[in-house]
Design a protein around this nucleic acid. Structure first.
Length: 580
DNA sequence: TATGCGTAGT
């Protein structure tokens, strides 16, 4: 029984489900006077789309009649939600397997990285179509088996533009940019995806000039190619160019806004990120979870609690559920703003949490000096069956370091590789050096650094040098400084620090040695500059005709200054998020 | 304009 009414209902169910409103979709489904097969299928698709596996399965079992759509929808639901075994069982039960269902199973194996089963499954397909081939090709390329991928590509009986694009993306995923370009030139036809993939390839290799050249050559530039350039420049640290592209765009979409906002965050322009968040809303573009996460990260870095709280309210009001991403961003924001109890409250109210949530909570407590709490959260986390990772230990070690809990910290450090399969990286060593350094155990710290299996970086040596100042140890200071100078030969503050250590010890000969060193290296007449001095310098750029500063340099300096100068309290008073 | 599989952007 199908009439116009049924079709309307079906469209509405689909529309609701696609927007995450699965409860409303179900209410409509239950209200329908007549449900046809498509209604059932649409509802299952809706559940599948929103990760509601159990609900989909329940409907699938109850439906009066099933067609090929029903089966493949349910298989998709399982494979896309990480239940490959269930998918496999259902597939085995499927009465007449069509090529779509076969392709889904190949894709399911590809998703979990089981290429052997994927290939085996592919081989059994009676009449593989071009989609079957592309799915397999993708599997190899995504696992970095580019040679295998190429072999599949060469064996394909028919190739369309999608096949070529998949091979192109494969080369780019493996960062084989020359091979990619060669393939790009060989392509019998190119669509906008081919162009954008190639442009993005140059972006990923950090070759923005080539990306730009290709973008200019692109016949019909669409919003995605523009967005790729914006994200590319942002990633490359060239926010001025990213912003220019953004302003020149005629039709900006949500991704354009997100790209520029996230670019600001990546490059430390937090105020600008929040301003653009506001502008985005003013222009009637709805922020999504990614926008919110960026804005919250901006607040976290500025310690802008008032704005962050407004964002939290906005998030609740806009009907977004506080999912894992948003929840984690909120935890970090509140913790960085010193509201550790609120951070904990957000954590407790989250429907589900992941490792990042735990890590954010631990790091938040560490940051606020609650080392004991950080460790007890770690215990709680383990009790919940969540295994720690590198980030967890950075939080724990920094907690111990701030609280002077040397023995606990060392024990945690050693337990990393002993009890968990986690190899300490430079950041962990930096924490432990800091830990030992603050406690005055400089000899041990130096010994640790010298025995490191990886090369110590500037952060580690810098941390050691700082500790030498605190505990007046010129001998270790000389060793640390020498290493630090290898990384940062022109950073004045390092020399000044070393000089001060010797001065405090009364070793004027050593002080003089450092001064000579500075002079030799041309750093000695570079006083630490206040922002006012930098600002004047920037201003003088325009009147100084001997050197024409690059626009980018001026832009960067000005932005940093703006961010520093602006009063955050004032910013929230001017109701940053209030868009009338 | 109602439902299933493959290629691009935060």
């Amino acid at each position: 029984m199908t009439n116009r009414n049924t079709v309307t209902y079906n469209s509405m169910i689909s529309a609701y489900a696609k927007n995450g409103r699965v409860v409303e979709a179900r209410r409509l489904f239950d209200q329908m006077p007549y449900r046809n097969l498509v209604s059932w299928n649409t509802m299952i698709a809706g559940y599948s789309h929103n990760g509601c596996v159990a609900e989909a399965a329940e409907l699938f079992d109850r439906m009066p009649k099933r067609d090929a759509f029903s089966w493949t929808l349910m298989i998709t639901c399982y494979t896309r939600n990480g239940e490959l075994e269930e998918a496999r069982r259902l597939f085995d039960r499927m009465p007449e397997k069509d090529v779509v269902s076969w392709n889904l199973m190949v894709e399911g194996f590809v998703r979990v990285g089981d290429l052997v089963s994927a290939f085996e499954c592919f081989r059994r397909i009676p009449n593989p179509n071009v989609i079957s081939w592309v799915t397999l090709l993708n599997g190899y390329c995504k696992s970095g088996c580019i040679v295998e991928g190429r072999r599949i590509f060469d064996q394909m009986p028919e190739k369309n533009v999608v096949s070529w694009n998949a091979m192109l993306a494969g080369y780019i995923r493996c960062l084989q940019i020359d091979e990619a370009y060669q393939l790009f030139m060989e392509m019998p036809e190119r669509n906008s995806i081919s162009w954008t993939t190639m442009i993005d390839g140059y972006v990923q290799c950090g070759i923005m000039d080539e990306a730009l050249e290709l973008f200019m050559r692109m016949p019909k530039k669409d919003v995605v190619s523009w967005n790729t350039m914006i994200a590319g420049y942002a990633q490359d640290g060239q926010m001025d160019k990213a912003l220019r592209f953004f302003h020149e765009m005629v039709k900006k979409n949500r991704v354009s806004w997100n790209s520029v906002i996230s670019g600001f965050i990546q490059n430390g322009f937090y105020v600008e990120a929040l301003q653009h968040f506001k502008m985005m809303r003013k222009e009637g573009k709805d922020p999504d979870w990614s926008t919110f996460a960026c804005a919250l990260s901006g607040c976290a870095n500025l310690a802008a609690l008032q704005v962050g709280t407004q964002l939290h309210n906005l998030l609740l009001k806009s009907g977004h559920i506080i999912d894992i991403f948003a929840g984690n961003a909120l935890i970090t924001m509140y913790a960085r703003c010193g509201r550790i109890l609120t951070a904990r409250q957000v954590f407790d109210e989250m429907v589900s949490v992941d490792l990042v949530s735990w890590n954010s909570l631990i790091a938040g407590h560490a940051l606020n000096g609650y080392a004991k709490a950080a460790i007890s959260i770690f215990q709680e986390m383990k009790k919940n069956g969540v295994a720690p990772d590198e980030v967890t230990f950075i939080g724990l070690l920094s907690a111990c370091s701030h609280a002077g809990m040397v023995d606990d910290g060392l024990e945690l450090f050693y337990s990393m590789s002993r009890d968990y399969p986690i190899t300490p990286v430079a950041e962990h060593y930096a924490c432990v050096v800091d830990l030992l350094g603050r406690a005055g155990r400089l000899g041990e710290a130096l010994k640790l650094v010298k025995g490191m299996p990886i090369k110590a970086n500037a952060g580690i040596w810098g941390s050691l040098l700082g500790a030498c100042r605190m505990h007046k140890n010129p001998e270790v200071a000389n060793v640390a400084a020498e290493k630090l100078f290898e990384f940062e030969p022109h950073t004045t503050s390092n020399y000044v620090l070393l000089s001060n250590i010797h001065a405090e010890a009364g070793s004027w000969g050593e002080v003089e040695r450092v001064r000579v060193l500075m002079k030799e290296r041309g750093v000695w007449k570079q006083p630490a500059r206040s922002w006012i001095e930098i600002k004047n310098e920037v201003r003088s750029f325009s009147s100084d005709d001997s050197t024409e500063p690059r626009a980018a340099e001026v832009f960067m300096v000005l932005r940093v200054l703006n961010a520093q100068m602006r009063n955050i309290g004032h910013m929230s008073d001017s109701s940053l998020l209030d868009c009338g």
